[in-house]
């Protein structure tokens, strides 16, 4: 099997596990929505909510991502599946790309839910061009988050006590995504008078991030999980 077919098989396996267990649908998505409602309680003002909605969408995404990444590797380590794959001589870069792809699909679905929630709950009203930009932002940010999440999730897989380490390692790394995606989404939503054209440089930053961590992850994932 070449790298691509292994990656596709791993991604399909992860998505099949989710389709069977429905953890994202039944637990993570409701959690993300609760976070959105909690933000509204904390920032009890319609004007403020509309202004900061893009940041809240991405914060909720990052918090949910921590849960999804942990879930993604809990599935692997429970039966020593990751070790079995490695012992079977499966290319670690293919495992990395496959798990990243599955994570990206799940994250993207979550982001769609969160953006819809912001539309309904926080009263943001993007233009047609704004929706298009928001879509591109979500794609670019999700690819980067998928790679980074899988890379650091691999480290947190396995031994006890590592779950608590994941947020500490992951959140500083994804700071550029939070900054870039929030600014781009502000431009898309027109928050604080931002225009749609202001968002594209930030999408460039997101793309650079995704490329760098995609490449680094393909190389570094093997040594990180190889125990």
């Amino acid at each position: 099997m070449n790298r691509r077919s292994v990656a596709v098989a791993v991604a399909r396996k992860d998505l099949a596990v989710e389709a069977g267990s429905r953890v994202i649908v039944n637990q993570v998505a409701p959690f993300a929505l609760v976070v959105m409602v909690m933000f509204a309680f904390a920032l009890d003002n319609d004007g403020i909510l509309q202004r900061v909605a893009p940041g809240l969408v991405w914060l909720a995404t990052l918090f949910s991502m921590l849960v999804v990444v942990q879930r993604s590797f809990a599935v692997e380590s429970a039966d020593g599946a990751l070790d079995a794959l490695r012992v079977a001589g499966v290319d670690p870069a293919a495992i990395f790309l496959g798990k990243s792809a599955a994570l990206m699909v799940q994250l993207f679905a979550l982001e769609v839910v969160l953006v819809c929630a912001a539309f309904v709950l926080y009263g943001v009203e993007p233009t047609a061009a704004g929706w298009a930009e928001a879509f591109v932002t979500m794609v670019a940010a999700t690819v980067g988050l998928g790679f980074v999440g899988t890379l650091y999730g691999g480290l947190a897989a396995g031994a006890r006590g590592r779950e608590t380490l994941l947020p500490l390692l992951l959140l500083p790394v994804v700071a550029p995504v939070l900054i870039g995606a929030t600014r781009a989404t502000e431009a898309a939503f027109g928050s604080g008078g931002a225009s749609v054209s202001e968002g594209w440089p930030w999408i460039g930053l997101l793309a650079v991030f995704a490329v760098i961590f995609g490449a680094a992850g393909s190389v570094a994932f093997g040594p990180l999980v190889d125990e």
Binding site: P172, V173, A175, P176, L205, I212, F213, A216
Partner: peptide, 12 residues
């Protein structure tokens, strides 16, 4: 890898 990226994005 991460530190220059963070620095650059915070700068921006």
């Amino acid at each position: 890898l991460e530190i220059p990226l963070v620095h650059f994005s915070v700068e921006l």
